[in-house]
Design a protein around this nucleic acid. Structure first.
Lengths: 138, 138
DNA sequence: ATAATACTGAGAGTAAGTATCAATTAGGCG
DNA sequence: CGCCTAATTGATACTTACTCTCAGTATTAT
C-alpha cells in the first residue's frame, strides 16, 4: 500500500521528500481514519518532525492525486483514508455515533441486500463518490 | 424535497423553527452544494437573519438526521447536499478541479461501465458511503 | 558533485467552528 | 385561543483549523 502510494506520487512528477514519505507512512500504518491534527501530532513525535504547513500541503496534494480521500465523520475537520490502487473503498458510517464499519470485500453489484444481513444494519442511504479526471482536466 | 425534509425533521421529534426552515429552504433552493459560510451568508440577507451559531447547530442536526450530508469537494470546509427521501445520491468529483457532475439516474448495479461512456470520464475510483443506524445505536 | 528548482519550516494572520447563558419561541393542552 | 414549559436561539467571546509568505533547504537530473 505504502509502496504503491509512493510510486503514484513519483509517477505524477512530484519529489519524494522526507515529509511526504512520513505523512504517507502515518496514514498507511493502521489503515485508520486520521484527521489532519492526528497526522500532525504523530509527525511531531520522532526526530525530524515536520511542520504544520507542510502537513496540510501534503494532505491537499495527496487528495488531488486521489491517493487519499477526505471524508466527513464528525463536525470540524475531515478524516483521511488511503485509497488502494484499484480506487475502491467502502464503509458504513453511522450518522448517529459516527462509527465506521469497513467493508473489505466490496462488490458494487448486489451489495446492498447482503449488507443488511451481514452487518445487522438497515441501510437508509448511501453516497457513491466516483473519482476520475473529468473531460476538462485531461 | 423541502416538504419531505421538514416532515423528517418533525418526525424525529424536533421543532420546526424559523431558523431550521430557512436553512432547509436555502439548501433545497438550487440543489447546490453549499458550504456553511455560504448558507450563513444567504441566511443573513433577508429580514429576520439567523445567527452564526444557529447555522452550525442546524447543519449538525440535519446531518445527524441524514437529511443532509457533508462532503469534501475542496480543502477546508465541507459542502452540504440534501439527501432525497430514498437516500440515494451519486456524483462524480474530479479530484483535480473539484468539479462535480451529478448523476440523476443512479443504478448501483452495472453502473460503472456505462458511466465511462456517458460522461467521457475514466473512473479511477469511488467511495461508496452507506448510511444506516448501526446495531449499537438502535 | 553541482546546479536548478521544487519543497519546507516558522510564525503571523485569517477563517471556521464551539461554548455559554440569558432571552425567546414552538407547540401541546386546557 | 392563549398559557406553560422545554426546546431553541443569538450575541459574544473563545478555541481550533487552516493559509500565507519568504528565506533557507533538500531532491533529482545531469
Amino acid at each position: 500500500m505504502l509502496d504503491t502510494a509512493i510510486q503514484r506520487l513519483k509517477n505524477a512528477g512530484y519529489k519524494l521528500t522526507n515529509a511526504r514519505r512520513m505523512v504517507l507512512e502515518i496514514l498507511c500504518r493502521d489503515d485508520a481514519h486520521l484527521t489532519s491534527a492526528e497526522v500532525l501530532e504523530r509527525a511531531s513525535l520522532g526526530k525530524d518532525p515536520i511542520g504544520r504547513a507542510t502537513v496540510f500541503r501534503t494532505l491537499d496534494l495527496l487528495t488531488e492525486l486521489a491517493i487519499i480521500r477526505p471524508t466527513y465523520l464528525r463536525p470540524g475537520t475531515p478524516h483521511y483514508i488511503v485509497m488502494p490502487e484499484n480506487g475502491h473503498h467502502a464503509h458504513i458510517i453511522c450518522p448517529k455515533c459516527q462509527r465506521v464499519i469497513e467493508i473489505d470485500d466490496c462488490e458494487i453489484e448486489g451489495l446492498l441486500d447482503e449488507l443488511v444481513l451481514r452487518h445487522k444494519i438497515k441501510i437508509s442511504g448511501h453516497l457513491l463518490e466516483l473519482y476520475g479526471e473529468c473531460e476538462y482536466c485531461r
